[in-house]
């Protein structure tokens, strides 16, 4: 069973639909006890970083996420769900994140339109996931902020938005985190979720 954390933010239905398409059983819950029984956890998120973190804390699910990480339960963060795993964000004031990944979340510095909305090529380092996907598969992004000052060894995938390198797929320990939306990235996105479901431990 895959647990999708519901803290009142985001299009949870899409993540659930994608998991179902892959034949996985999934539940959406804000109840720690229910989520704790799941084998893997997904932390989605859209909206403003500060609101997301505040809602997560208010439901005391921040501690649950940290406990999952400490216990080595596989976790996937998506979009703001990824960003919250970093130390802090500068979106609408400075907000503390959960601090699992080293680095901070900063606004795009570009002449291109912000947010970045659309499909961009994902460039991958040598990693087991890479062999599962087309070369430089397209994935779907919607965001105005991205990770910076991260640890190079945590990064496995990125895209370029104009001249800006957008770090967008991180793996550290039992945690995987994507800035893009695998659940909205067509067949290649589904393959990334399938990797998390079947092979990521």
């Amino acid at each position: 069973m895959i647990g999708i954390i519901d803290y009142g933010m985001g299009n949870l239905r899409s993540v659930e639909n994608a998991l179902k398409e892959l034949g996985a059983e999934a539940l959406i819950s804000d109840d720690e006890a229910v989520l704790a029984d799941c084998e893997k956890i997904i932390l989605p998120g859209v909206g403003a970083f500060g609101d997301c973190v505040a809602n997560l804390r208010q439901k005391k699910l921040d501690r649950f996420v940290i406990r999952c990480i400490e216990e080595g339960k596989p976790l996937l963060g998506i979009c703001v769900g990824m960003q919250m795993l970093f130390e802090e964000s500068e979106e609408k004031g400075v907000h503390q994140g959960l601090g699992f990944f080293t680095g901070r979340i900063v606004r795009f510095d570009t002449d291109l339109p912000v947010p970045q909305i659309g499909w961009n090529e994902l460039i991958l380092k040598e990693h087991p996931l890479r062999n599962r996907l087309r070369k430089n598969p397209y994935v779907y992004y919607v965001h105005s902020y991205h990770a910076a000052e991260y640890q190079e060894e945590d990064l496995i995938g990125w895209s370029y938005y104009g001249d800006v390198k957008v770090p967008s797929l991180f793996v550290k320990g039992h945690v995987m985190a994507a800035q893009f939306h695998p659940e909205k990235s067509g067949e290649e996105g589904l393959k990334i979720l399938k990797y998390f479901l079947e092979d990521f431990v």
């Binding site: 239905r13 899409s14 639909n17 994608a18 179902k20 398409e21 779907y140 919607v142 939306h181 659940e183 909205k184 990235s185 067509g186 067949e187 996105g189 589904l190």
Partner: peptide, 11 residues
């Protein structure tokens, strides 16, 4: 919308 979201994995 519900039916579409269940079978179309794009925004």
């Amino acid at each position: 919308v519900e039916q579409t979201a269940a079978q179309v994995f794009m925004p």
